[in-house]
Design a protein around this nucleic acid. Structure first.
Lengths: 341, 341
DNA sequence: TGTTAGCACTCAAATTCCACGAGTGCTAAG
DNA sequence: CTTAGCACTCGTGGAATTTGAGTGCTAACA
């Protein structure tokens, strides 16, 4: 357990380092208004804090910087979330009060705003489509071999894919099949579509549609849509302004990371409610060992729709980011709620 | 006019520099097999070539590097396009002989292969949709205020947008209108849709559809689709391995460039036939002053569909890139031709 | 007993200095 | 016209030196 004074000092060191990105010495701390002790006293306390693992020294004759447990203690016990500045509030308010755009646009704009306000890289996962329900299915033939299949969900998401038409299948039988599927599948969650077809509709199929065996391969092609949410990013270059990324190798590792949506998706996924903070090694990934990821989910009716998050150096302005994410996910959830009702 | 020997030497310098990224001295050149002169002779010639502006010296006691006009002369007069290596050929062949994917996937795979083979950043513009013809129009209502409009073109491109339903417009009248539009607009090029509606269909509208004034605003929303081609990139991080990008500032400028699709689109646009090379300042953009852009268009029936290109340092392996782009655009054109017929 | 001033000490970063050598330009001989 | 030889240039890299921020320890003080 830390004494009150130690907490004060730890907090001062973290906040000072977040701003200046340079090791902070005892003198700097003692000169802060909220600290009433001499540099010598601070030195003693800082030595103790280092022994406890909350601070570390780059080298003997330098000041202290927070260790990863130092940051962890800070976000868990010492941090007081910022109030969001007025111009930022205004920008967010304007985004969500604007007329309804397509979902993807809203998402893209949200990440974009987040990265502009924080000056870190921001990322959004989702929304996942698993339990979206089928609203409409459409097949548009392009020629006698190719057709476009279009799936619309109740949330207004549109999914498309090209399918090849098996030999010997007529346009009219395709049409017949699509009609049948539409009447039978509307309202079924996407991740149940395939098994519903195979379990319940096979019989119906064989009765109403000729050549149904061939058509089945088409249906399977149609329904093999991607259910995972997409990854949206914004401000990937922001992080290059941070002094901890002067090294080209680090930049490269990070940029390559962003090109792998798979990994990004894993890094940012967040099944908890509320804002989640992962500091450095807590991410279990070499490339982000000196980065922190702050993320939060947005939801409708308690059902998580996706995640929005920020990636920055461990020396991140947690106060600002946390309060911002809190606000954004609230507003986003509300906005999407209005949209879907 | 350069003498034969000068050409030989210029070529040697350029090729040597492309490989090693270090100033090449007279000794290095004289030791090449295809050069039969002593270092001293080369020195004299190199001094002349420098005077003519084809070579330059970083400092007095260093070798020469090609100037931008040096590269220009090289690609215009000295370069002999490479034969493409077998494994690369195989990869490309496999891409285009695979079953037909959706257009976007083919495109993404093409850029990806290009960047992997060249180790530079590769980019594709397009395809532009201006003269694609409408194949099918569909409106799927989500609730009483929102609907999704879906546009399918004859090339299988699907465009979607959310539209708001004006008050007092019934679902049935929307249906009626969509039917009308489908019969009247199918086969019309996308960039004519709007004016066709306003010029030729207004009258028809007023006769068949009630409340047509309200519906018109919906139609306008639907048809305001984006006709410019999208920008696809791959291997943005490749360029970070090049020794000319050890400087974080340069990296940042370039990465920020990639985030601006507008500028990227302008940089790579290529209205000529055949492979086009733009070297350094010829791009008229600060961030790519020491980069070259090689691009080529792909087309169907002589009609340009889009552009594919490569961005690398001016010290680029032009031979490889040119022959590769030549092959890729040919194959791509052919592939798309097969697809659309 | 807790706090503070003073002082010697440490060590990274910046600066200066120096030797090395790759490469040049010029000259004179072949 | 070509080439060997030589003096000269200048960037590179390493060693030595200086500088200064910051520490730990000790002793005095409240």
């Amino acid at each position: 357990m830390l004494t009150k004074r130690q907490k004060k000092i730890l907090r001062a060191v973290v906040e000072e380092y977040i701003v200046n990105a340079e090791p902070v010495g005892s003198r700097t701390v003692s000169k802060r208004e909220d600290i009433g002790f001499s540099a010598a006293t601070i030195r003693n306390e800082m030595a103790d804090l280092e022994e406890m693992g909350f601070l570390e020294q780059p080298h003997t004759s330098a000041g202290r910087i927070p260790s990863q447990s130092g940051y962890r203690y800070y976000v868990d016990h010492l941090m007081i979330p910022d109030r969001i500045e007025h111009p930022d509030l205004l920008m967010i308010h304007r985004l969500f009060s604007s007329h309804m755009d397509a979902l993807e646009q809203t998402i893209q704009q949200t990440v974009s705003i987040l990265s502009r306000i924080t000056n870190y890289t921001s990322i959004m996962l989702g929304p996942e489509l698993y339990d979206n329900k089928l609203k409409h299915l459409q097949v548009v033939p392009l020629n006698d071999r190719m057709a476009v299949a279009i799936l619309v969900t109740d949330t207004g998401h549109v999914d498309q894919r090209w399918i090849t038409v098996p030999d010997g299948v007529s346009l009219s039988s395709i049409e017949q099949m699509v009609n049948l599927l539409n009447t039978k599948l509307t309202g079924i969650p996407l991740h149940h579509l395939k098994q519903t077809v195979h379990k319940e509709l096979l019989e119906e199929f064989s009765r109403h549609v000729e050549n149904y065996e061939y058509l089945l391969s088409m249906v399977d092609q149609m329904l093999a849509s991607e259910l995972e949410g997409r990854v949206f990013t914004s401000g990937t270059t922001n992080i290059l302004s941070q002094p901890e990324f002067r090294d080209v190798e680090k930049i490269k590792a990070l940029m390559e990371l962003f090109e792998e949506t798979e990994t990004v998706s894993r890094l940012f996924s967040n099944k908890h409610t509320g804002v989640q903070i992962r500091i450095g090694h807590e991410n279990h990934l070499e490339a982000v060992n000196n980065c922190s990821i702050v993320s939060a989910s947005f939801e409708i009716d308690g059902r998580s729709l996706g995640t929005i998050g920020v990636l920055g150096p461990t020396r991140m302005d947690y106060c600002k980011v946390v309060s911002l994410l809190d606000l954004l996910t609230r507003d986003l959830s509300q906005h999407l709620g209005r949209l879907y009702k």
